[in-house]
């Protein structure tokens, strides 16, 4: 008599302690579900960034609640606010101090393009000094927009060829 396998999920009693999968999938799953952000809170957007971290929007639902003010412990720099020319070198230096792999979210119009500050003092887009993965529009973006950007970043991480770069450098 043949019985149908009713196990929908992984069952150690049947499969043993072995799971067969792609290295990329595992690494990306780990990376994307625990993005530790480095809040580069520069101006108004930082308040909405704090709003996203607080109880109502609760960024912890997406595994990114561990805000690290030390760049060495962070994966994703969220540039929240206007980057001025005076601040730009510091933003770059902090980015350089972050360990690989690292990602950048440009939060809001100012960080993305200079926004409404077309003036002598404002860097017209943080992508001139650091590579940006996700741009968020809005002045400032709502916390939902930040969460959306985080989900987009997670799916971007999910498509990376992580194993190749990881084992090539090892």
């Amino acid at each position: 008599m043949v019985t149908a396998n009713t196990e929908l999920a992984y069952n150690t009693k049947i499969e043993g302690d072995i799971v067969v999968t792609k290295a990329d999938a595992v690494i990306n799953w780990l990376r994307s579900s625990s993005v530790w952000p480095m809040p580069m809170g520069l101006a108004c957007c930082a308040i909405e960034l704090m709003g996203a971290a607080a109880a109502r929007f609760d960024i912890a639902r997406f595994g990114a609640e561990v805000f690290r003010f030390s760049p060495r412990q962070a994966d994703c720099m969220i540039v929240a606010g206007t980057v001025t020319y005076k601040m730009a070198p510091h933003v770059r230096r902090i980015y350089d101090q972050m360990a690989e792999p690292k990602w950048v979210i440009a939060m809001g119009a100012c960080a993305s393009s200079g926004g409404m500050y077309r003036s002598y003092a404002t860097l017209q887009g943080v992508d001139q000094i650091v590579p940006v993965d996700v741009y968020i529009s809005g002045c400032p973006p709502r916390p939902e927009a930040l969460l959306d950007a985080l989900i987009k970043l997670q799916s971007k991480i999910g498509a990376e060829r992580s194993a190749k770069t990881l084992f090539a450098s090892a």
Binding site: L42, A43, T82, T84, K86, M87, Y117, S119, A121, T122
Partner: peptide, 8 residues
Amino acid sequence: VLGYLHRG
């Protein structure tokens, strides 16, 4: 030292 958010 200020001026890191001087936007004009």
